[in-house]
């Protein structure tokens, strides 16, 4: 991209942006439903929110932000025609994604060991549904990043043609973005 002049289209394939919009809409509806349902069950939500592990959520937020940052670096590298650098940053990003999955998995393990499930109460229903839906997006995002990383390692992208990297990156940032709202909304706001 050259200096001042702006683009008409966002980076990556336009189709991924249509997909991102659809995904944001789904998450938006979920967040709104959470907020308004809480308004009718304030005590319940405030009580059970305290049972969530904010430290785990902190680690996970840091993991996703860091991961997103690594992906930004990967894109910067491929724009400088550095496939190896791009591959390494993507690998690092995937490592952070994995950390997220492990930490989230441990949180689930804790809840399940207490016998908590979707039918325990409305708060847990939302907490489990929202975070698990997001969890699946992390998995999907990692699959996409992995495919991009493998292609980058084989030298499949260049400074001239790297739409694939930008496409994967845009999706991954969306996964990060959604968590930026989810974290305060479900773990902190009271």
């Amino acid at each position: 991209m050259t200096g001042m002049e702006k683009n008409r289209w966002p980076p990556g394939d336009l189709v991924i942006w249509i997909f991102i919009m659809a995904e944001l809409l789904v998450f938006g509806v979920f967040f709104t439903a959470y907020a308004f349902t809480r308004a009718h069950n304030v005590e319940l939500f405030d009580t059970y929110q305290l049972t969530l592990d904010r430290n785990a959520a902190l680690i996970n937020t840091l993991a996703l932000i860091t991961s997103s940052y690594f992906v930004v670096r990967a894109v910067a590298d491929i724009r400088a025609d550095d496939s190896r650098g791009c591959f390494r940053w993507l690998l690092a990003a995937l490592g952070m994604g994995l950390l997220f999955l492990v930490v989230k998995g441990l949180e689930y393990k804790h809840h399940f060991s207490l016998g908590i499930d979707l039918s325990t109460n409305t708060f847990y229903m939302f907490y489990l549904s929202l975070t698990f839906f997001h969890f699946l997006h992390v998995v999907l995002g990692m699959v996409i990043l992995l495919a991009v990383a493998l292609k980058a390692r084989k030298g499949g992208y260049s400074a001239a043609e790297h739409t694939g990297v930008e496409t994967g990156a845009s999706y991954w940032h969306m996964v990060d973005l959604v968590w930026m709202i989810l974290f305060p909304l479900v773990y902190v706001m009271r």
Partner: peptide, 30 residues
């Protein structure tokens, strides 16, 4: 991160509009 700062036109605002929307709805509910 997503690079929308480099974009002109409607796509520049997709994230902003989404944030505005859910921000207001969450505020209204809380």
């Amino acid at each position: 991160f997503m690079g929308l700062k480099q974009v002109a036109g409607p796509w520049r605002w997709v994230i902003f509009v989404w944030l505005l929307l859910i921000g207001s709805l969450i505020t209204a509910a809380f």
